[in-house]
Design a protein around this nucleic acid. Structure first.
Lengths: 147, 147
DNA sequence: TATTGTTATACTCTATAACTATA
DNA sequence: TATAGTTATAGAGTATAACAATA
C-alpha cells in the first residue's frame, strides 16, 4: 500500500458520478439493470436456466425466480419446460422483451453520444483510448469477487 | 445516426460492467449509494435540509425523509430544528456516520487499488489519463438531466 | 442424496397522495 | 397560497429458509 497517490482514490469519485448518472437513466419505464442483463443474455445467446441467470447476475435463485415471474407477467419472457431435464425450465425472451432491450440500449447509447458531443476532442480521445483498459479493470473486479 | 461507430455504443457495455462491479462492492453492511452520497455531503459541507438532500440525490422528499429516518435510527445522522425556519429541520452527520463514510471510502479505494495492480502499466496510464475526461462526461450527464 | 425450482416470509428502498405546520 | 416535512400506503427488488419434484 506504499508509494504515492492511490489510484483507487482518484478513480472512486469519478466512478461514483458515472454510476449516479447511469442510474438516473433507468427511468420508471426502463428495465432495472439486472432485468436488462437477463434480457440481453436471453436475446444474445438464447434460452437459459433460472440457475444460470441467477449465477450470471449474482442473484439468489429465488430472487431470479421472482424476477422471471415479474418479467413473465410483463410478457418480456416466457417459461418453457426443459426437454432434457424435468426439474428445470428454460426462460426465453419474447419479441416484446427483445424490443425492449433494443429500445433501451439505443436510448442509452444515444444519450451517451449526446454527452460526447459536449466534450473536447482530446477528452473524447482519452476516453475511447481508455475503454479497453476500463473493460479489463471491470473484468478483474468480476473475477476477483467470484474467486 | 450516420457516420461511423457510435461512441456511446462502445462505452455502454464497459460502463455497465463497471456498475455491476461497483454494485457488488455494496455489501449488506455498507451503506447504499444514496445513503453514502448523503453522508458524504453532510460530512464534507455540514448540515443540510431534507429538501436539499432530496434534490442532491434526485430522490423524492418523502423518500429522503424515510432514508434520514433509517439513518437516524442507525445513529448515522441526527435531526435538529432549523433555527431560521420553523418549518424545516437540519440533518447533521454523527461521529458514527462520519466514521462509516471514511471506512467505506477506504474499503472501496483499497479494492480499486488492488484491481489496478492486476493491470498492465499501459492500461493504468490510459485510465489515469482519462479520469478528468470521464469526470467531465459524468458532469455533463448530471447537468443535462437537471436542465 | 444432490440439484432445480418454487413458495413463504421479511426487509430495504422508493414512490405518490394526503396531511400538518409554518411562512 | 406556497413551502417543509411527515405519514399512509403500495410496489419493486432482494434475501434466507423450507418445501416439492426430479435426477
Amino acid at each position: 500500500m506504499a508509494g504515492g497517490e492511490s489510484r483507487g482514490s482518484q478513480l472512486l469519485p469519478v466512478l461514483a458520478q458515472l454510476v449516479r448518472f447511469l442510474r438516473q437513466l433507468e427511468g420508471p419505464d426502463n428495465p432495472s439493470s439486472v432485468a436488462l442483463s437477463v434480457l440481453r443474455r436471453l436475446s444474445d445467446d438464447g434460452p437459459a436456466r433460472v440457475t444460470e441467470l441467477a449465477r450470471l447476475t449474482r442473484a439468489s435463485q429465488p430472487g431470479m425466480t421472482q424476477l422471471v415471474g415479474r418479467m413473465e407477467k410483463a410478457a418480456l419472457v416466457r417459461r418453457v419446460p426443459d426437454p432434457n431435464d424435468g426439474r428445470g425450465v428454460l426462460v426465453e425472451v419474447t419479441g416484446e422483451g427483445a424490443a425492449l432491450v433494443s429500445r433501451t440500449l439505443t436510448h442509452y447509447a444515444t444519450t451517451l453520444d449526446r454527452l460526447f458531443e459536449h466534450l473536447e476532442p482530446a477528452d473524447r480521445d482519452a476516453i475511447v483510448h481508455a475503454l479497453p483498459a476500463l473493460e479489463r479493470l471491470a473484468q478483474a473486479g468480476q473475477k476477483e469477487s467470484a474467486g
